[in-house]
Every structure is written in structure tokens, then in C-alpha cells.
Design a binder for these strands. Structure first.
Lengths: 154, 154
DNA sequence: GGATAACAGTTGTAAATGCAATTATTATGC
DNA sequence: GCATAATAATTGCATTTACAACTGTTATCC
């Protein structure tokens, strides 16, 4: 029987501890991951925002700029600038939507697809390294927990 | 017996899925949390970086600028600017270290302590809301998983 | 069907970020 | 003990970010 750590992670608690605060740990893990992954991505000439967009479009396309922004949890106006840069770099292209005159559809170019393949290659070893030590059950639990955190933030 | 999802989360996998990629979920959860928490913090006039520094100093002080930066996983030069702003706002103060002439020690002012108390008050309800639904055991598992992810990224 | 609201995208602007170079101080090797 | 390397903090500068205001298009309500 282990101690109930939930009160310790409550910011308003008397005996609050940073290392029991899930969002501190969440941000810390995410930040560190980004630092590590960024140096890998630099080698193939892309940054984290571009990589996120590539990943998102790699799974479903075309997507509107708004949809991409929402998926990536990135501000719409920031996403505009990212789309601009990526278009200039030839990674993606945009077309006005047939169905809705307000919408611009974003999709990968061949160059973008190739870059995504490169990105997968350079990030895969890192993935293996980090996942090592997680059993299938633990991995599944991790996904569920992250999903739940996200849902609770709706 | 559930399926082993680990291969699905591998970026180089044939049938890769974003929603099985832990770092996508990690970043998404962290981003959303930041968006939500930011609007709470705005009400008491601080931003996320300042809040992170307050939390860190609230647990241990004084700390060198470098230590604060490391704890927060924020670039040192960025942390310099944050320290500057917070000093100007009267939340923290800095003194040269006795022991090491290169080091500047950072600590909370009374105003900083009061602001930290405010921050805890406005963030606590959010904490409760998000934590609700997690058992003590699940909560503990969550902390362990985040800790492990972080350690694996060393 | 026309006014009004909601929505997708776009841009100006100010602030934040981080790389790279610099200074000042302390640790290390011989 | 002195030269050299390592470390902590600092700043210039170019890039990135996001708020707020704006345009154009579609949905809603009477």
C-alpha cells in the first residue's frame, strides 16, 4: 500500500511538492523531448513546428489550416506563418477549398513526403531508446493517461 | 489481452498512428494545459514562465539563474530575460553569491511570495477538475511514467 | 431574402525566444 | 603558480510567436 500522492500535487496544499505535480512533470518531459528531438531534426533542416505539421498531414490530408492548427495545438496566426515558411520551402502546398470559399486546404508535396520519411528515420532511434523499458501494458497505460489528461482539459 | 501498441507509436513504422505516439500526446496535453492555465494566470497578472519560476523558488531558494533555468527546462538566455522582467515587477531579487563570484542567487520577494500564493489559489480548482477521476494508484502511476519518460531523455 | 452573427484566414505590431559571441570568475593540468 | 579550460551570466540580433484588428465567406434567424 503506497501513500496517496494526490494531495501533494495540489498547488494549494500545505505540503505541495513540485515532483508530485503532474503538469510540472508533463511540461518538463515535453520540453526535454523537444530539446532532444530538435537537434535531430536540425540535421535534416526542419524545426519542430514543421515536423508537427508533416506528421499531422502524413496521417490525414488535405486539412484546412485551422484543422492543422487545432491538431497541433498551435495558435492559428502562428500556424499561418508556419504554413508560409513550409510553402516557401516547398514542403506543402495550399489550394482553395471547392466546398467552402473561406477555407484553404493544405497538403504535402512530394518533397514534403520525402522530408517526412527522413524525419521518421532520424527520430526512430530516439523513440526506441525512450520506449525501451516500457512493457506493452505500461505503454498502453501511458497512452490512456495522456489521453485522459487531455480530455479533462477540454 | 490487449494489443501491443508500441509498434504503432514508432514513427518509422508502416502503420504509424499519431494517437499512439506518446510524444504527440505529451506535447498536446502540455500545450493544452498551458493554454488553459495561462488564462487563469492572466487574471493575476503573470504569465507561464513567471509562474514556473515562482513554483520552483517556492520549493527551494535561493537558486542560481542556471539552476532555475535547468529546473524549468528553459534556455538560459531566455531565463535571463524572464528574471529581468520578474525583478522589474518586484517578484524576485538577485544577489551575488558569496561562495562563487560568477553566480547570482535568485530569491522571492514578499511580493513574489504573495503572488505565488495567489497563483496557487487560482490554479487549484483546475487541478481538482483534472485530477478528478484518477485513483491514488493511477495518480501514482502517472507520476512514475512521466518521471521515467524524463529520465529516459537524459 | 436580407440583416446579422459566426467563422476561416490574413496581417501589423510588440514582445518573447534562442543562437552565438562576450565578459568575468573559478577549476584543472602541468 | 600559471596557462588553459570550463562554467555562469550577459547581451546583440534575427527569428518566432501571438494578440488584436481586419477581410471575405458562409450560416442563422426573423
Amino acid at each position: 500500500m503506497t501513500e496517496d500522492l494526490r494531495p501533494l500535487g495540489n498547488p494549494s496544499s500545505e505540503n505541495f511538492r513540485l515532483d508530485a505535480y503532474p503538469f510540472y512533470l508533463l511540461n518538463r518531459a515535453a520540453s526535454r523531448y523537444n530539446v532532444v528531438i530538435e537537434s535531430e531534426l536540425r540535421r535534416i533542416g526542419i524545426d519542430i513546428p514543421a515536423w508537427r505539421v508533416l506528421m499531422i498531414l502524413g496521417e490525414a490530408q488535405p486539412l484546412s489550416i485551422g484543422q492543422v492548427a487545432k491538431s497541433a495545438v498551435i495558435n492559428m496566426s502562428t500556424m499561418m506563418r508556419i504554413i508560409e515558411r513550409m510553402t516557401k520551402a516547398g514542403l506543402i502546398e495550399t489550394n482553395p477549398s471547392e466546398a467552402d470559399g473561406r477555407v484553404k486546404e493544405v497538403l504535402l508535396t512530394d518533397h514534403g513526403k520525402a522530408k517526412l520519411a527522413d524525419a521518421r528515420i532520424v527520430t526512430a532511434p530516439l523513440y526506441d531508446k525512450i520506449i525501451k523499458g516500457f512493457s506493452a501494458a505500461e505503454f498502453s497505460t501511458m497512452l490512456q493517461i495522456l489521453e485522459r489528461l487531455h480530455d479533462n482539459l477540454e
